[in-house]
Simulated assay, not measured.
Amino acid sequence: MLAADATALGVPDTPEDRARYGYPAITGAGSAALPQAHLAAPADCGTHAITRAALGRPPAEMGHALTNDLLAALTRGDLLLADCGSADLELLSAIRAAGADVLWRAGPLPPLPESAALPERTVLPDGSCLCDLRCGPARPRTEVRVLDDPPHRLITTLVDHEAHPAPVLRALYRER
């Protein structure tokens, strides 16, 4: 199990760092005092060891933890726990291609990310439902399971409700 997260780091105010990272906008206050780099890293949930890190320009969607650089750290059988934004959803097919699964918090109920189409397909005995998720017209559909975990919603590629019961997945995500 890997937990992905991201943070912003102030970096020295040098011409190189200004050009590479820039000054992020601060709502109602202009821009930050220092250039800021975006650090994203997955960590092993058991040992808390960071397995890979990516440092770059802050993404348009702050808090976005996943990047293509970090996808290279995923292997078959990994379970990636993370907060999920619409930009992360667009990486879902690449994560699945690596053989990894996800358990993501998708945000407050009831809205889903605007780029996600999650028509309810099958309600399962544990209260979760199977849906086809497609982010963007060129993306393939991926079967996911959606679990309500008020005030949030969880999305997972672990679709077998008997092998991965909803209460276990909810508890697992909360331990993230």
Rank of each mutant, 00 (worst) to 15 (best):
H38M: 10
D78P: 07
L55K: 09
R105W: 03
C129V: 05
H38D: 14
G107W: 03
T27E: 12
T47R: 04
T47P: 10
G63R: 04
G28K: 11
S115F: 00
L79D: 10
V168S: 11
Y173W: 15
R121M: 09
S31M: 09
L147I: 15
V11G: 08
T7L: 13
S128D: 09
A117L: 05
L130R: 02
D126Q: 06
L9A: 14
E175W: 01
A82N: 04
G99D: 11
L130S: 01
R141K: 05
A25M: 11
L109C: 12
P137G: 03
A138G: 02
A25P: 06
A33L: 13
P12D: 14
G136K: 01
P12N: 08
D132H: 02
A37R: 05
L70I: 12
Y23K: 11
R52A: 15
T157N: 03
L79S: 10
A32K: 08
G22S: 14
L172W: 07
E16F: 12
P58R: 11
G63P: 05
L79G: 10
L92Y: 05
L66Y: 01
H164D: 08
A65R: 05
T7W: 05
R174M: 03
V123G: 01
I95R: 06
L71R: 07
N68S: 13
D69V: 09
L109R: 15
L74Q: 10
L130M: 04
H152A: 06
P111Q: 10
L34F: 15
A60W: 02
P140W: 01
S115E: 06
H38T: 03
G77K: 09
L81K: 07
R52C: 07
A65Y: 03
P24T: 13
P137D: 09
R134D: 01
L39T: 10
A60E: 14
Y21A: 11
R105C: 15
E90S: 15
T122K: 04
A65N: 07
G30E: 11
S31E: 14
Y23C: 13
V11T: 13
R20G: 07
M62V: 12
R170W: 02
T142W: 00
V159K: 00
P113T: 11
I26D: 10
R96G: 08
P24D: 14
